[in-house]
Amino acid sequence: MVAPIALIAAGSLALGACKTTPDELPPEPTPTPVATSTSTPGGPVPGSQADFIASVASDTVYFDTDRFNIDSADMATLQSQAQWLMQYANKRITIEGHCDERGTREYNLALGEKRANAAKNYLVSLGIAASRISTVSYGKERPVAMGSDESSWAQNRRAVTVTIQ
Rank of each mutant, 00 (worst) to 15 (best):
V2I: 06
A10N: 08
S12L: 12
S12D: 08
C18G: 05
K19A: 08
D23L: 15
E24V: 12
L25A: 12
P31V: 00
T32Q: 10
P33G: 04
V34N: 09
T36M: 09
T38I: 11
S39D: 08
S39N: 07
P41D: 06
P44W: 02
G47I: 01
Q49C: 01
A50W: 00
A50T: 09
F52N: 00
A54L: 08
A54R: 03
A54K: 11
S55Q: 01
S55G: 01
V56N: 00
A57C: 10
A57K: 14
A57R: 11
A57T: 15
S58A: 15
D59V: 13
Y62W: 09
D66Y: 10
R67D: 14
I70S: 06
D74W: 06
S80H: 01
M86Q: 15
Q87W: 01
A89D: 07
A89N: 03
A89P: 03
R92H: 05
I93F: 01
I95K: 03
D100K: 00
E101W: 03
E101Y: 10
E101I: 13
E101H: 10
R102T: 14
G103P: 05
T104I: 09
E106K: 13
E106D: 13
N108G: 10
N108M: 05
A110T: 06
L111Q: 02
G112V: 07
E113K: 08
K114E: 12
R115D: 01
K120Q: 04
Y122M: 10
A129F: 11
A130T: 04
R132G: 00
S134Q: 07
K140N: 09
K140T: 02
E141R: 04
V144W: 02
G147A: 08
S148Y: 11
D149T: 13
D149Q: 04
W153A: 15
A154R: 14
Q155A: 13
Q155P: 01
R158K: 01
A159K: 04
A159R: 01
V160Q: 05
Q165V: 13
Q165S: 15
